[in-house]
C-alpha cells in the first residue's frame, strides 16, 4: 500500500498536508506524533472511513495493489473488506463471540455452518483468543475483559482475510498485561498481513514496528510527515531536529 501526495481537509481546514507513505507487505508501520497532528485522520483515509466525515475533502492517491482506492470505478465496500480496521476502544457487537467473528463472513454470503465454524476458529486462533474462549463461543462478546474484547475485534477483522490491518491506538484503553498480549499478537499477525498502527506510545512503536513515521503539525497547524524510515534508525539516528526533540521528550 502506498500513499501519494495526500491532503485532507475538514471544511476549509487542511488537517494533513502532502503525505507520502509506503506500507510494504508483511511489515508493521507505526505512526507516531503529538495528539492532534492528524494520525487518525491519515489512518481513516486508508480504508475510506473518512468518507463519512461531512464536508470533508481529500486529494492525492492511496494505492492498494497498485490501484487507487479513490478511483471512480472502485467499490468502497470492497476496499474496506481488503483493508481491515481496529479501533481505539474495543467495539464488539452485542452478540455472541461466535457471531462477532462470523459477522463479516456472513455478509459475504457464507452460510454453511461448517465453513463458518472453520473461519471462526481460525480467526480466533489468529487473534490468540481461541484458548480463552473456545468453550464459551455462545456467550456475549461484551462479557469479555477489555483486552479480550480488543482481540475479539482483531479476530473479527481478520475473519475477512484483509490484506492490510489498520489499528488506531489499539492498546491505549488497556492495562499493561493486555497491552503486551496485543503487542505479541501483532508480531504474529505480521507474518500474514501488513499493519499500520497509530500509537502515542514510543516504546510500543520501538518494540513492534519495522518502520516508523513521525508526524507533526507544520507552521499552518496542518499535519505532515516529518520523517519516515526503519524504526531503529528513526529512534537511534533521527535526521531531523524535530524528530529528535520529540523522541527524546524535549518536545514543544
Amino acid at each position: 500500500m502506498q500513499v501519494r501526495g495526500l491532503n485532507f481537509y475538514y471544511g476549509n481546514v487542511r488537517a494533513i498536508t502532502d503525505v507520502n507513505l509506503d506500507v510494504p507487505e508483511h511489515r508493521i508501520v507505526a505512526i507516531i506524533g503529538p495528539s492532534g497532528c492528524g494520525k487518525s485522520t491519515l489512518l481513516r483515509t486508508l480504508n475510506r472511513m473518512s468518507d463519512f466525515v461531512r464536508r470533508s475533502r481529500m486529494d492525492g492517491e492511496v494505492l492498494l495493489d497498485g490501484e487507487n482506492i479513490y478511483g471512480t470505478t472502485v467499490d468502497v465496500v470492497d476496499v474496506r473488506r481488503r483493508v481491515g480496521m481496529v479501533f481505539q476502544r474495543p467495539n464488539p457487537f452485542p452478540k455472541s463471540i461466535y457471531e462477532n467473528v462470523a459477522f463479516g463472513p456472513r455478509m459475504l454470503g457464507i452460510r454453511n455452518r461448517g465453513d463458518l465454524d472453520g473461519i471462526v476458529e481460525r480467526s480466533l486462533r489468529g487473534a490468540a483468543l481461541w484458548n480463552e474462549v473456545c468453550d464459551k463461543l455462545k456467550e456475549s462478546g461484551l462479557a469479555l475483559s477489555g483486552g479480550q474484547q480488543q482481540r475479539l475485534c482483531i479476530a473479527r477483522a481478520i475473519a475477512m482475510e484483509p490484506e492490510v490491518i489498520l489499528m488506531d491506538e489499539p492498546a491505549s484503553a488497556l492495562d499493561p498485561v493486555a497491552t503486551s498480549k496485543i503487542e505479541d499478537l501483532m508480531r504474529e499477525l505480521r507474518e500474514s498481513y501488513s499493519i499500520v498502527i497509530v500509537t502515542h506510545n514510543m516504546q510500543q512503536a520501538m518494540r513492534i514496528s519495522d518502520d516508523t513515521a513521525f508526524m507533526n503539525v507544520n507552521s499552518q497547524r496542518s499535519g505532515h510527515i516529518v520523517e519516515v524510515g526503519p524504526t531503529k534508525r528513526i529512534f537511534t539516528d533521527p535526521q531531523q531536529k524535530e524528530t529528535e526533540d520529540y523522541i527524546t521528550g524535549r518536545f514543544g
Partner: peptide, 15 residues
C-alpha cells in the same frame, strides 16, 4: 446507536 457500532460494521465492509 453508538457511532462505534456502525463504524465497526462499515469497517468490515458493510453497505
Amino acid at each position: 446507536l453508538p457511532r462505534t457500532q456502525s463504524e465497526a460494521a462499515f469497517a468490515l465492509g458493510a453497505t
